[in-house]
Amino acid sequence: MLNNLESSYDCSQASEDLHSLRLELESLISGSSERSPEEQEKINRIENQIRFIANKCGIEPHPS
């Protein structure tokens, strides 16, 4: 997960960042069907980061 995304995010890293975030998200989602509130919060943050990068950089997000 990226620590801080801001409006000054550099889109030249978007492809690599999105790939990493999607792998991390997939790992968390496939891990277990019962999630702690902390795990669900992390999933939500990663999904938000993916949407932020996709919107900022004009990339079509993959469906979850």
Rank of each mutant, 00 (worst) to 15 (best):
M1T: 14
M1L: 12
M1E: 10
L2H: 13
L2M: 09
N3K: 08
N3M: 04
N4Q: 10
N4G: 02
L5P: 01
L5F: 06
E6F: 02
E6L: 03
S7T: 08
S7M: 09
S8F: 03
Y9L: 01
C11D: 01
S12H: 04
S12T: 08
S12C: 00
Q13N: 07
Q13F: 10
Q13Y: 11
A14R: 05
A14D: 05
A14H: 04
A14F: 07
S15T: 13
S15A: 09
S15G: 02
E16Y: 03
E16V: 08
D17T: 02
D17A: 05
D17K: 02
L18R: 02
H19W: 04
H19F: 09
H19A: 05
S20P: 00
S20K: 10
S20Q: 08
L21F: 04
L21W: 08
L21P: 00
L21Y: 05
R22S: 06
R22C: 01
R22T: 05
R22Q: 15
L23N: 10
E24P: 00
E24L: 14
E24H: 11
E24A: 15
E24D: 13
L25I: 05
L25G: 01
L25E: 07
E26Y: 09
E26L: 09
S27F: 08
S27V: 01
S27H: 06
S27K: 12
L28G: 00
L28T: 05
I29R: 11
I29M: 11
S30C: 04
S30G: 03
S32L: 02
S32T: 07
S33H: 07
R35H: 14
R35T: 09
S36V: 07
P37W: 06
P37E: 14
E38Q: 14
E39V: 06
Q40I: 12
Q40A: 09
E41Y: 06
E41M: 09
K42C: 08
K42I: 09
K42W: 05
I43C: 06
I43M: 10
I43E: 07
I43Q: 07
N44P: 01
N44V: 06
R45D: 14
R45T: 15
R45L: 15
I46L: 13
I46Q: 02
I46A: 06
E47C: 13
E47L: 15
E47H: 07
E47R: 15
N48H: 12
N48P: 00
N48L: 12
Q49T: 11
I50G: 04
I50N: 02
I50L: 08
R51A: 14
R51K: 15
F52M: 09
F52V: 03
F52Y: 15
F52L: 11
I53N: 03
I53H: 01
A54N: 15
A54D: 13
A54V: 05
A54F: 06
N55L: 11
K56I: 05
C57W: 05
C57V: 09
C57R: 04
C57L: 09
G58K: 07
G58C: 10
I59V: 12
I59L: 12
I59K: 04
I59D: 07
E60M: 11
E60Y: 07
E60A: 10
E60I: 14
E60R: 13
P61L: 04
P61K: 03
H62I: 15
H62T: 14
P63V: 11
P63I: 13
P63N: 12
P63M: 10
P63R: 12
S64V: 14
S64L: 13
